[in-house]
Amino acid sequence: MNLDALTARLHAIRDANDWRRFHSPKNLSMAASVEMAELVEIFQWLGEDESHHLSPQQLEHAGQEIGDVVLYLLLLCAELGLDMDQVVRAKLADTERRYGK
């Protein structure tokens, strides 16, 4: 996955629709949170086992919401001047240091 290419495509959509004025870090973080809540809603009333065995429709819906979250986070990183690949790798390294073997 080329994150720079994805971000460029997102910026093209943003610019074509004159959405830049709405893409402040505050708004993008709130939008990501809303999309995460939509993902949580899929699992809200499922049991543990049910959450591992989603219907094809539920899986498709979950994938859409995960995509929304990731895309908003890419836009947020761009607005903050953060490199998504770098911040994810740094966080993973920290997690490995703290909890890895």
Rank of each mutant, 00 (worst) to 15 (best):
A16Y: 00
S29Y: 00
V88W: 09
E79T: 02
V34Y: 13
R20N: 07
Y72V: 06
H52T: 11
A93N: 08
E96C: 09
S33R: 09
R97K: 10
M30W: 08
E96Y: 13
R97P: 04
R98F: 09
M36E: 09
N2P: 04
M30H: 08
D4Y: 05
L73E: 12
E38K: 07
R97H: 11
Q64F: 07
F22Q: 04
C77Y: 08
E38H: 05
D94K: 15
E60D: 13
G67R: 09
K26H: 10
K91M: 07
K101Q: 07
L28K: 05
E65Q: 09
R97D: 11
A37V: 02
N27Y: 06
I13N: 07
F43P: 02
M1I: 14
L80D: 01
M30V: 09
L54E: 04
M30I: 12
I42Y: 07
D18C: 12
E50A: 04
G67V: 09
L10Q: 04
D85I: 11
D94P: 10
H61S: 15
H61I: 07
N17D: 07
L54D: 05
V34W: 08
S51Y: 01
H52F: 14
T95Y: 08
L3N: 12
P25Y: 01
L6N: 13
L82R: 12
D85L: 11
A37K: 00
D4C: 03
G47T: 15
A16W: 03
E35P: 12
F43G: 06
A37Q: 00
P25H: 02
D4V: 10
K26W: 08
A31Y: 00
P25F: 00
L39R: 05
Q58K: 15
N2C: 03
G67N: 09
K101D: 11
Q64A: 10
A62Y: 05
S55P: 12
H23N: 15
D83C: 01
A12M: 07
V87L: 07
R89M: 14
D83E: 03
G81S: 02
S51T: 04
